[in-house]
């Protein structure tokens, strides 16, 4: 329970931090913390149903703080969670580079999804050249911050699951018999 509360608090704080930083730095040069958290959930959260519910909640919070249609971020966060979960079963996404590449690609797909949904619901222009130009640095920044986001979710998940279970996880290392 503690880890769910901690992740929800972090997920709610993420768009707020991003919104505050956005007053000083152009947002496409700022990592999408919400997306990174959802990718972390997809890679490290044990319960699929729990991860889906958490991702959807984080999406709703982002929708409330954003100018998007209500439900737009929620749908894209669900997709991001599903993509991370599915890809982690087929590919090795444990390393820094695979995570960075995966998140950069996911950023592009979710941004195109945002444009497509906006255009489909007639709420504005869809994907255009300007958006693609801004997308490249944003994808690179997200990719660079991806390992940090994934690591954070993993740490919170492990830390609070130890606290919830009332015992501590011990890390075992093999002893070198030659010494």
């Amino acid at each position: 329970m503690k880890r769910i509360i901690a992740l929800l608090a972090l997920g709610a704080l993420a768009p707020m931090i991003q919104g505050a930083i956005g007053t000083f730095v152009p947002l496409h040069y700022c990592p999408a913390f919400g997306l990174l958290l959802v990718v972390g959930l997809g890679l490290h959260w044990r319960s699929t149903a729990g991860g889906i519910a958490l991702s959807a909640t984080l999406g709703v919070i982002a929708d409330l703080l954003s100018g998007s249609l209500l439900g737009q971020h929620m749908l894209l966060r669900l997709f991001a969670f599903g993509a991370a979960r599915a890809c982690s079963q087929q590919l090795n996404l444990r390393g820094v580079m695979p995570q960075a590449i995966f998140v950069a690609a996911l950023t592009v797909v979710t941004a195109l999804g945002t444009g497509a949904l906006t255009s489909f619901f007639g709420a504005g222009r869809g994907v255009d050249g300007e958006m693609l130009r801004e997308l490249i640095p944003h994808a690179l920044i997200n990719g660079a911050f991806a390992p940090l986001g994934v690591w954070l979710v993993e740490r919170i998940s492990n830390w609070f699951s130890e606290a919830d279970a009332g015992h501590q996880l011990l890390q075992l290392r093999p002893r070198n018999r030659l010494t």
């Binding site: 956005g22 007053t23 152009p26 700022c30 999408a32 982002a62």
Partner: peptide, 15 residues
């Protein structure tokens, strides 16, 4: 007072 901007780079709104 403007306290924050849209967390998504694809929308332009302020709080």
């Amino acid at each position: 007072e403007l306290v924050g901007v849209d967390p998504s780079p694809w929308f332009r709104s302020v709080l």
